[in-house]
């Protein structure tokens, strides 16, 4: 009997999963605290103790997210695109398109029935296309990240952001606040702008139903609603969207065990 471990080191949090087959047995999340190697080591310890397993019980590990070398255990460096594809496939075998909204970037992945990557596109390396944009705006509005979604859903009149740049978006948000625009309308406007960016990314790789969301963006109901409206469809939403890549990494560990 073999267990496999997947670790996803993100810019904000590090996620880990121990899987048996393609099912998650144990999962765990900690803050990355700007020390990615330490986060990877820590999450491994945390996972083992939670699962009451020994290091020797883990047949192999895959690490994705931040690029790491020289960890204390043998591992496969895995592409987050591949991990995300496998993770979504294990949860929703019917998904053919994945919208993966992470802190630093957003990617659209087309997957086949086996969870293999058919094609993918990553947003430009600028904050406007990622969860970072939401963090910036939340900071301007002085609200917590968790409150973004519920507040945005209350909006009756989302503002139209004319800019596609996060820096200008920030100043646009500031001037909107000064004009007295309700916070929920600003947030819903940001959600809509992100949803439009996502729709454009999908234009570049093509679309096939059904469509799933993953990554931290999948926790944000405001964003989900905006994407569903923009694309005119219902998204497949994992219970723990932020863990999808870690789960996928555990599956990739099985595939790439030397």
């Amino acid at each position: 009997m073999s267990y496999f471990m997947g670790i996803d080191v993100g810019s904000r949090t590090t996620k880990g999963v121990i899987a048996y087959g393609s099912r998650a047995k144990t999962f765990h999340t900690i803050f990355s605290s700007n020390n990615y190697r330490e986060a990877a080591e820590k999450i491994r310890e945390g996972l083992l103790s939670r699962a009451r397993l020994q290091a020797a019980d883990i047949a192999y590990t895959a690490v994705t997210g931040q690029q790491l070398d020289n960890l204390s255990f043998p591992f496969h460096k895995a592409s987050d695109t591949r991990c995300c594809a496998r993770g979504v496939n294990s949860l929703f075998p019917e998904a053919r398109t994945v919208i993966d909204v992470q802190g630093q970037s957003t990617q659209i992945i087309r997957v086949d029935e086996k969870g293999k990557v058919v094609n993918f596109v990553v947003s430009e390396r600028c904050a406007a296309g990622s969860g970072r944009f939401l963090e910036i705006i939340a900071n301007v509005l002085r609200i917590n990240l968790e409150d973004i979604g519920p507040l945005s859903l209350k909006s009756q009149n989302p503002v139209a952001f004319t800019t596609s740049c996060a820096v200008f978006g920030e100043s646009e948000a500031i001037s909107r606040v000064a004009e007295g625009t309700p916070k929920e309308d600003i947030l819903a406007g940001v959600h809509r702008a992100l949803a439009q960016k996502i729709s454009t990314l999908i234009d570049r790789v093509g679309f096939e139903a059904r469509c799933a969301i993953s990554g931290g963006g999948g926790l944000d109901m405001g964003l989900i609603k905006a994407i569903e409206q923009e694309l005119g469809l219902e998204l497949l939403i994992p219970q723990k969207p932020e863990l999808v890549s870690a789960l996928g990494a555990a599956i990739v560990a099985q595939e790439s065990k030397p």
Partner: peptide, 13 residues
């Protein structure tokens, strides 16, 4: 990092 995923894409096409 993306190379691995892109290989699957190239295989597919």
């Amino acid at each position: 990092r993306r190379a691995e995923a892109f290989e699957e894409t190239m295989d597919h096409y």
